Simulated assay, not measured.
Amino acid sequence: KKSVANQLKKIKQNPDWFLIEAENIYKAYLPKFPYKILYTLDKEKIIVWAIAHMHRKPWYWQSRMR
């Protein structure tokens, strides 16, 4: 829980600092865990699409983008 909360705080502070996963989707890895937070930037908000396991069905979240 703390790792997710800490990473979300970092995303909020500097959202465009993280790597790009695909097109306008950013990814922020969770330290010490095989998970990543996938999000996009809107004009006034950050939209988190998934907290995805990096080894189990790594692209399952893409269906949420439609």
Rank of each mutant, 00 (worst) to 15 (best):
P34K: 07
R64G: 03
R66H: 07
V48G: 04
A28L: 03
K9Q: 04
E44W: 02
P58N: 05
P15Y: 03
I46V: 15
I51A: 13
P15A: 09
W59G: 02
L41V: 02
M65V: 02
R66C: 04
A5T: 14
D16V: 06
A28N: 07
I11R: 00
H55Y: 12
R66E: 05
V4I: 15
M65Y: 01
F18S: 06
E21G: 00
R56G: 03
F18W: 11
K43R: 13
L41G: 03
A50M: 13
K32Y: 07
H55T: 12
W49K: 12
W17I: 13
W49N: 01
A28M: 02
E44P: 01
N24S: 13
M54Y: 00
Y35A: 03
K57S: 13
W61L: 04
I51R: 09
I46L: 14
K2A: 14
L30Q: 00
K2R: 12
T40E: 02
K36P: 00
V4N: 04
K1G: 12
L30E: 07
V4R: 11
Y60D: 11
R66L: 11
K32D: 08
V4E: 08
L38H: 00
A28C: 06
W59K: 15
K12Q: 06
H55C: 00
Y29I: 09
L41I: 11
I11A: 00
K2Y: 08
T40V: 01
F33V: 10
V4P: 05
E21T: 03
I47W: 01
K27I: 02
F18H: 12
D16L: 06
W49A: 06
Y26Q: 06
W17T: 11
I47P: 00
L41P: 00
K57N: 14
Q7G: 02
E23R: 14
Y29T: 04
L19F: 05
K45S: 15
W61H: 15
W17Q: 10
H53T: 00
A22P: 01
N24P: 04
T40W: 01
Y29Q: 09
W17C: 14
I51K: 13
K2E: 14
Y26F: 15
H53K: 10
I11W: 02
Q62R: 15
A5Y: 13
I20L: 11
I46W: 12
V48F: 11
N24C: 13
V48M: 05
Q13A: 14
V4T: 10
L30C: 03
N24H: 13
N14M: 00
I37S: 01
K32L: 10
K27N: 04
K27C: 03
L30S: 01
K9D: 01
L8E: 12
I51H: 06
Y35S: 11
Y26K: 09
K2W: 04
L8H: 04
L38V: 06
H55Q: 14
M54E: 06
E21M: 07
K10D: 13
P31F: 04
H53E: 02
A50Q: 14
N14Q: 09
S63M: 09
P58S: 07
M65L: 15
K9R: 08
Y26T: 03
K57L: 10
L38A: 00
E23L: 09
Y26V: 03
P31D: 10
I25G: 03
A28Y: 04
